[in-house]
C-alpha cells in the first residue's frame, strides 16, 4: 500500500467517516452529557442542556436511592463467575477436540453450536420451574450456572480455534520430555494459549454482562445484575433522565472499555471462526 492517496480524497473520506461515527455514537455521548445534569435541566432543549450547570449529583443519588453497587457487584460476580467456570470446563474439551480429533469431533462441535441456538424462550418455563424447585430463583449462583451453560458453546469454540493454531508437535515434545497430561496442559498448552484464553474470557464477560433474557426473568431484587436493575427504570416515577443516564453510563462504561480492547476477538468469537 505504498501509493499515496490525494489529500483531498482523504479529507473527504475522513469527514464522512467522522460524521457517521459521531452520529452512531451520539446516543451514548448524549447520556454521558445528561448524567452530569440535574433532573430539571435534563429535560430541556438540547441547547439549554449543553449550557446548563454540570454536576455529579445524579451519580450520588443513584447509589443512595437504589444501592447501585449491589447490582454492580452482582453483574461482576455473574459475568466473571460464569465465564471462568466455563473456561475451566472448556479448556480440556477444546484440548481434546483440537489435538486428538476423532471422526466424531466435528459432529460434537456442531452439536455444541446447535445448543447455543436453542431459543431461550422455548425452555423458559422448565428452567423457571427447576429454579424454584432448587430454591435458586433470584440467586447469583443460579445465574452463574445458566449463563455459563449458554456461553459454553462459544467458549469451547473460541478456545478450539485458538488451540488449533498451536502446533501439535510442541505438545508431543512435552510428552516426549516426560510430561504427564496434567503437566502438558498446565505448563505447556495453557501458557502458550494465554492470549487466546484472555480474549475468550474478555468476550464472554461482555456477553454475560449484557445478557438480558435470563437475568430479567430469573432475578428479582436480590440477585438482579445491572441489566435487570436498569430495566426497573422502564416504569419510572417523576423526573428520572439524569438518574437513568448516570446509572446507564456506569453500567456500560466498563464493558465499553473491555469491548474496545476485544474488537478483533469479537469477530472471531461471534462468527465461530467463520470470519477471521
Amino acid at each position: 500500500m505504498a501509493r499515496t492517496v490525494s489529500t483531498r480524497r482523504k479529507t473527504l473520506t475522513t469527514i464522512a467517516a467522522w460524521t457517521i461515527g459521531i452520529v452512531i455514537f451520539f446516543p451514548i455521548l448524549w447520556i454521558i452529557v445528561l448524567s452530569f445534569k440535574t433532573e430539571g435541566d435534563a429535560i430541556k432543549t438540547p441547547l439549554e442542556v449543553l449550557t446548563s450547570l454540570w454536576t455529579f449529583e445524579s451519580y450520588a443519588v443513584v447509589q443512595e436511592r437504589s444501592d447501585y453497587f449491589k447490582h454492580f457487584t452482582n453483574s461482576v460476580i455473574i459475568a466473571l463467575g460464569s465465564t471462568l467456570l466455563g473456561v475451566l470446563v472448556a479448556v480440556p474439551a477444546a484440548w481434546s477436540m483440537a489435538f486428538v480429533p476423532s471422526p466424531r469431533t466435528r459432529g460434537i462441535l456442531m452439536w455444541m453450536l446447535s445448543t447455543k441456538m436453542l431459543p431461550a424462550v422455548g425452555v423458559l418455563y422448565p428452567i423457571y420451574l427447576l429454579f424454584i424447585q432448587l430454591g435458586i430463583l433470584d440467586s447469583r449462583i443460579g445465574l452463574v450456572v445458566v449463563l455459563m451453560l449458554i456461553n459454553l458453546p462459544i467458549i469451547v469454540w473460541m478456545l478450539y480455534t485458538y488451540f488449533r493454531e498451536i502446533p501439535g508437535e510442541i505438545l508431543e515434545a512435552a510428552r516426549m520430555d516426560g510430561a504427564t497430561l496434567r503437566a502438558e496442559l498446565l505448563y505447556v498448552l495453557t501458557p502458550m494459549a494465554i492470549p487466546g484464553i484472555a480474549s475468550t474470557v474478555l468476550l464472554n464477560v461482555i456477553l454475560a454482562w449484557n445478557e438480558a433474557f435470563w437475568t430479567l426473568n430469573l432475578t428479582a431484587a436480590k440477585a438482579a445484575p445491572l441489566t435487570a436493575f436498569i430495566a426497573s427504570y422502564s416504569s419510572p416515577e417523576g423526573l428520572f433522565y439524569a438518574k437513568l443516564s448516570a446509572a446507564s453510563v456506569m453500567a456500560i462504561a466498563p464493558i465499553l472499555i473491555m469491548g474496545w480492547f476485544s474488537q478483533k476477538q469479537l469477530v472471531r468469537g461471534l462468527t465461530f471462526g467463520a470470519v477471521k
Partner: peptide, 16 residues
C-alpha cells in the same frame, strides 16, 4: 511416550 525414556528432536524444533 513419556515413560519410554526416549528423547526426540522435531522438524519444527517444537521449542516452548
Amino acid at each position: 511416550p513419556a515413560k519410554r525414556g526416549l528423547a526426540m528432536v522435531f522438524q519444527s524444533y517444537a521449542l516452548y
